[in-house]
């Protein structure tokens, strides 16, 4: 199964990961090899229970009891102003209910 350079770049964009040409070339070869290797799973017949883990998880009581931060966001945030986390402005992408002044 060979992965193309274009696919590597598309996947890298999905994963918001900058990948330069040299790295993309290397990844193309490595990933193709790995995918060839994992393709042996095709030997297994399809179907079968595949119902996943039957265990049910635990739920939490609805009460306000937060796990406190033992250090405030100012200690670890790269950029904080007026209590808000700051990032370079989002480009044209607009979720639709974000606020603009």
């Amino acid at each position: 199964m060979s992965v193309t350079r274009a696919e590597i770049q598309r996947i890298a964009a999905l994963a918001e990961l900058h990948v330069d040409d040299a790295t993309a070339a290397r990844l193309e070869a490595e990933l193709s090899r790995i995918l060839d290797y994992v393709a042996q799973l095709q030997e297994l017949p399809d179907g079968g229970d595949g119902d996943g883990d039957p265990r049910a998880g635990r739920l939490r009581r609805d009460e306000v009891a937060p796990d406190r931060l033992e250090a405030p966001p100012t200690d670890f945030a790269p950029a904080l102003k007026q209590g808000l986390f700051l990032v370079p402005r989002l480009g044209e992408l607009d979720r639709g209910e974000d606020e603009s002044p």
Partner: peptide
């Protein structure tokens, strides 16, 4: 901000991690 994501993650993650993220995303 997207340029920030790409540059941060490209610089911050090493070879094997990047490999696995690409493989996993794929």
């Amino acid at each position: 901000v997207r340029a920030m994501y790409r540059k941060t993650r490209g610089a911050g993650f090493g070879t094997e991690v990047r490999r696995r993220i690409i493989l996993g995303t794929y």
